[in-house]
Design a protein around this nucleic acid. Structure first.
Lengths: 276, 276
DNA sequence: GTTCCGCATGAATCGATAG
DNA sequence: ACTATCGATTCATGCGGAA
């Protein structure tokens, strides 16, 4: 990609990816069109053909990703004929065959999914966030996404005198396993592999597939400033907006002209705000 | 099974299942030993052999299950050589090939996941609850598991949302009447396919793998009174305890004599309490 | 009688060390 | 080189004793 920090390309990502240099992308975050979803827009990939449709694209993703980079795929299988279809788990196996390592599966637990009821199932309140890597060693900046402790634990620790805490810490020094000093004084703890986030509602301008906090969390976790983030199905550009705010370079691809234009507009408006 | 409402059989479930009549079980809820887990207790099935080990058992489960019945499998893949192993998704595909329908995947979002810190991953805070059926039409009693609207949104599952956390804190802390009105309100909603529960810690009495609320929720959802519930890996008998309390018949199987004895003892103690 | 604190302990995973 | 064992890490929970 060029030096511009944010780039939106309009077109089919399979073709556009051919022009991206190998080993040049630090992080790929994308939410591709689900099978049969958005039929009018993407021509409606059927569940049976989903894997065959995706594999040529993921082959390019594997090529352009840096060895230390991460590919994060937001996806959820739909119900077909009363069953959860297997195209997602088929895809996991095919991506492994292609050379990706299936490092982890995060869960997005949707906080305010619409109440719904069907005769034989409840409303679907979670999606998969599949993490793939080229190598077992990859870039990960865990300290950037720490969270507050549970209240019950926090309450207990807060009652300790801060000075006493330091004394304990210095006294025990070598042996701080399984005692207070190991974590006393710390307000923040590491998160788990479940993200509990609200679904963003559609507004007049655009209908975001995911809330900004979702890409933000992963971009902070897997990249540093000026790293290059790729979203081959960038839609209205939420991932790009987050990159702009966080000072990451961004390469977005979108086949629909309206969405590509909207993405550019949203990012331009962020730029303007930042300059003010 | 005989007329006794609760039966615990000691032995290998593959052999014991041969004596169970076809199409006789309303609901199967089980949490088999995970690959290489609890090695000291069970033999420890390796990830490579896991599917081959499970398929003969699931073939029997398919046979004994009523056409309208449901099979619910609690399982989670472990990390092998830096990757999430594929034996669970391999198993899903094999079970479908065997004749099961993969109807749904519920998520157990664990409130208190096993601690730990690693350079390349966070704590694992969720497990799969895979729902399989013989037919697209199956028994499901959705009204039995309805929840209060408040509960569905504000279950203190707020670690990623400090603002919500403060709201709840102030609500529960100062405004008691507000809290009460939420509970007295008649607004009941259906739950989603994500369960947010704490792991039960070991206490002196027994060491339960999952909290009672987990089987309770599914048993209420998929069975009526006097229906027959089967757990081929019943361990210390938590599923049986719940069945006793809910007036369901139960058939449990356990290969370890200590655990089978413990299960019998726990259920006997429930019986005594109920008689008083 | 309450509330509060200390402690043990989990379906875990990684990296180093030893054979 | 490949496997087996061990130590270090970490957070929510329930129990029991103490204030």
């Amino acid at each position: 990609m060029n030096d511009n920090s944010i780039t939106i390309l309009e077109g089919d990502c399979l073709a556009l990816l051919k022009d991206v240099a190998s080993d040049s992308i630090d992080f790929i975050f994308t939410s591709p069109p689900y099978a049969d979803a958005r039929k009018k827009i993407y021509g409606g990939v059927s569940p049976e053909k989903y894997v065959d449709w995706f594999l040529p694209i993921s082959k390019e993703l594997l090529r352009v990703l840096k060895p230390s980079g991460t590919f994060l795929l937001n996806i959820k299988e739909k119900v077909v004929d009363g069953e959860r279809n297997t195209y997602v788990i088929d895809l996991i196996q095919s991506l492994r065959a292609q050379g990706f390592l299936w490092t982890e599966e995060f869960i997005w637990h949707k906080k305010n999914a619409f109440p719904g009821k069907w005769s034989n199932r409840f409303r679907d309140a979670w999606e998969r966030l599949l993490q793939f890597n080229k190598q077992r060693q990859f870039a990960m900046y865990q300290d950037t996404v720490m969270i507050h402790r549970q209240e019950s634990t926090a309450r207990r620790c807060d009652q300790y005198d801060p000075q006493l805490r330091l004394q304990i810490k210095s006294q025990t020094g070598s042996n701080f396993s399984n005692n207070m000093s190991a974590w006393s004084g710390r307000e923040m703890v590491y998160p788990s592999n479940v993200l509990y986030l609200a679904v963003e509602t559609c507004n007049r301008r655009h209908c975001a597939v995911f809330p900004e906090r979702l890409p933000r969390w992963f971009i902070k976790l897997f990249t540093q400033e000026n790293d290059v983030v790729l979203d081959p199905f960038c839609g209205s550009g939420t991932t790009g907006v987050v990159c702009k705010r966080l000072g990451r370079r961004f390469l977005g691809m979108e086949i629909m002209p309206e969405y590509a234009a909207l993405a550019k507009e949203r990012i331009f408006s962020i730029e303007k705000k930042l300059l003010e």
